[in-house]
Simulated scan of single mutants.
Amino acid sequence: MSRMVGTVSRGIRTPIIRSGDDLVEIVTSSLLEAAEEDGFAIRDRDIVAMTEAIVARAQGNYATVDQIAADVRSELGGETVGVIFPILSRNRFAICLRGIAKGCSKIVLMLSYPSDEVGNHLVSIDALDAKGVDPYKDVLTLEKYRELFGYEKHPFTGVDYVAYYQELIQDCGAEVEIIFANDPRAILPYTKHVLCCDIHTRQRTKRLLREAGAVSVYGLDDILIHSVNGSGYNEKYGLLGSNKATEEQVKLFPRDCQGLVEAIQKRLLEKTGKHVEVMVYGDGAFKDPVGKIWELADPVVSPAYTAGLEGTPNELKLKYLADNDFADLSGEALKEAIKDRIHKKDGDLVGQMVSEGTTPRRLTDLIGSLCDLTSGSGDKGTPVVFIQGYFDNYTTE
């Protein structure tokens, strides 16, 4: 009889991870204990994934507000700095902003509108239409913004992020001026020293500023790329992907993860005889259709993964085959015809009509999104996710 279950995603409980913990041992033993307790077998091409948070915690990859301030002051001079395009987040940006503010005498904070890069709205697009504001060209002062839109609060958090960031900067002893614009070059009449806080558009933002005559241009990915006064660091992403740990400290995105995923893969092979793929995941890459928030506030979904997770899906669209190529078949004949087509499919279906409508995304982005939804970000206590059947298809017995 054909297997009746396809992909299964399980959250795996682990001990609470602390700095210095051995993740190879913890992840392996937690998975093996779960398999024994729940009665599932580990198979070749299964996937085990761990959230980036436990990797960074095990690495002790943290930085304080004062360490951030020291690096900002060293790189940008400590005077008036334009801080542009930050996301609106107490968890993701507020503690970083405290460090940035402590490293400058004045901040010109430039917020994108009507929303930040990941979809957190200051105001609605309809409100812009009603007020005749063109977000592509209009630069608004704080006074004009308040005149037009008042004191809007985020619908989920209840926070007026404009006031929140303003007060936070002032509490750190820096002067603050706030403007609203979507062209990064709008900051240059205020200062030629700029810290770009956008995530996925940062390279373009930096290029435009340099071409327009900025004196110094840095991104969050340029701050804490090395240890500062004993801090953690991330040589590739700096402060990008960091999260609030305490009111005085952030947890940075993990570094040097490739050796970890390969070591776990090796340990599982030794323990089970099965070749399991392993990855580290952060935010998933999907958009909330109601809140309009694009989840991906990390620089990448997966900072490290084993070789078998490279690439994109290579799948046939079963409903296309059923409605077109095999429209005259039904029942067992249709089943066997589709199975035969799957067995004979090309190694690369890109551009072929029979694959139209299949998901054209990287495997690690798809799997990381599944993991993020499985583990959640709250109190589930399952920072490891075990996925089976992801690479199965209609022919798998």
Rank of each mutant, 00 (worst) to 15 (best):
F93V: 14
F93G: 00
F93H: 10
A94Q: 15
A94F: 10
A94D: 13
I95D: 03
C96D: 13
C96L: 15
L97N: 06
L97G: 08
L97Y: 06
G99D: 04
I100G: 02
I100C: 04
A101P: 13
A101Y: 03
G103N: 05
G103S: 10
C104F: 00
S105F: 01
S105L: 06
I107A: 04
I107P: 13
V108Y: 00
L109Q: 08
M110A: 12
L111Q: 09
S112W: 00
S112A: 13
S112V: 01
Y113S: 04
Y113F: 14
P114D: 07
P114M: 10
S115R: 14
D116Y: 01
D116H: 04
E117T: 05
E117D: 02
E117K: 02
E117M: 03
E117Q: 09
V118H: 00
G119L: 08
N120K: 15
L122C: 09
L122Q: 03
V123G: 02
V123T: 07
V123Y: 00
S124L: 09
S124H: 07
I125K: 13
I125N: 08
D126V: 15
A127C: 01
L128S: 04
K131F: 02
K131P: 03
G132D: 04
G132L: 09
V133N: 01
V133S: 01
D134S: 13
D134W: 09
P135C: 07
K137Y: 06
T141Q: 02
T141S: 15
E143C: 05
E143Y: 07
E143V: 12
Y145H: 14
Y145C: 06
R146S: 06
E147P: 08
L148I: 11
L148N: 00
F149T: 05
F149E: 02
F149R: 07
G150V: 09
Y151M: 10
Y151C: 09
K153A: 07
P155Q: 04
F156T: 15
G158M: 03
D160W: 03
Y161Q: 05
V162W: 00
A163Q: 15
A163F: 10
Y165D: 03
Y165N: 09
Q166L: 09
Q166H: 14
Q166Y: 06
E167P: 01
E167S: 11
L168T: 13
L168H: 10
L168D: 02
I169Q: 07
I169E: 02
Q170T: 15
D171F: 04
C172A: 13
C172Y: 01
C172F: 02
G173W: 08
A174N: 10
E175K: 14
E175M: 10
E175C: 11
V176D: 12
V176Q: 11
I179W: 01
N182P: 04
D183G: 03
P184I: 11
P184A: 15
P184V: 14
P184F: 10
P184Q: 12
R185C: 12
H193Y: 12
H193C: 01
